[in-house]
Simulated assay, not measured.
Amino acid sequence: MDSKGYVQVYTGNGKGKTTAALGLSLRAVCAGKKVFIGQFIKGMAYSELKAMDHLPGLTIKQYGLDCFIVNDPTEEDIKIAQRGLREMQAIIKEGKYDVVVMDELNIALYYHLFLIEDVLEIIKNKHHKLELIITGRYAKKEILEVADLVTEMKEIKHYYQKGVEARVGIEK
């Protein structure tokens, strides 16, 4: 992170993509780095939002209303995501932060909330020292090609299939 920033992607159907990005963010903040996390699609009160109260150098902003994954996105969902992408574009280009996480960006692309060409342009023009983390299922081939590191989370077994709901502090 001191000289060149890379593009990392966490994708796949297994649990842990956002968690991995949050872990990397915690490590960076504890090393004195500034971190911005933009959460696409998410608009609910996830526990990690409270981290800003405890970790100077960490900023989290949501670009979603509620999780629409079971329905089609509304026009408002699309507008909020596109506004978020524009805000993040400026943040990524300016170099004020050392690490930027585009949480659930891959899902936003999957639901056509914005264009892949716009995202590729943002990646291409990112500040050279910035570490860029992209999360979400269904990463597009173009994103995988420009990334420097790609990790695929693979679900082997999940207690959700036994009816266990998302738990505060663990999954949300």
Results as ranks from 00 to 15, higher is better:
D2I: 04
D2S: 14
D2T: 10
K4M: 13
G5H: 07
G5L: 05
Y6E: 07
Q8A: 08
V9E: 05
V9D: 08
V9N: 10
Y10F: 14
Y10R: 12
T11L: 01
G12M: 13
N13Q: 09
N13E: 10
G16S: 13
K17Y: 00
T19F: 10
T19Y: 11
A20R: 09
L22C: 12
L22M: 11
L22K: 11
L26K: 02
R27P: 04
R27T: 01
R27M: 09
C30G: 15
C30W: 00
G32L: 00
G32H: 08
G32D: 05
K33N: 13
K33H: 12
K34I: 00
V35N: 03
F36S: 07
F36K: 02
G38P: 00
G38L: 01
F40L: 11
I41V: 07
G43M: 05
G43K: 00
Y46N: 04
H54I: 08
H54V: 12
L55V: 04
L55H: 08
P56S: 10
P56R: 03
T59Q: 05
K61P: 02
Y63D: 06
Y63M: 08
I69C: 11
V70Q: 06
P73V: 13
P73Y: 15
P73M: 14
T74Q: 14
E76L: 12
E76V: 08
E76G: 03
E76H: 03
I78D: 01
K79I: 10
I80F: 12
A81V: 03
L85M: 14
Q89F: 01
A90T: 04
I92Y: 07
I92F: 07
I92D: 05
I92M: 13
K93D: 02
E94G: 09
G95F: 01
V99P: 00
V100G: 07
V101L: 13
M102F: 15
N106W: 05
N106A: 11
Y110I: 00
Y111R: 02
H112P: 05
H112V: 03
L113R: 00
L113C: 03
F114V: 01
F114W: 01
L115H: 12
I116N: 05
E117M: 04
E117R: 06
D118C: 02
D118W: 04
V119G: 08
L120F: 13
E121C: 10
I123L: 15
N125I: 00
K126Y: 08
H127I: 07
K129Y: 12
E131Y: 07
I133Y: 10
I133C: 10
I133W: 14
T135A: 10
Y138T: 00
A139M: 02
A139H: 10
K140M: 10
K141Y: 02
L144P: 15
E145F: 09
E145K: 15
V146E: 14
V150S: 14
T151H: 15
E152F: 01
E152N: 11
K154I: 09
K154C: 06
K154E: 11
E155V: 05
E155Y: 05
E155Q: 15
I156D: 09
I156N: 12
Y160N: 06
V164Y: 02
E165R: 08
R167S: 09
V168I: 01
G169H: 02
G169R: 01
E171P: 13
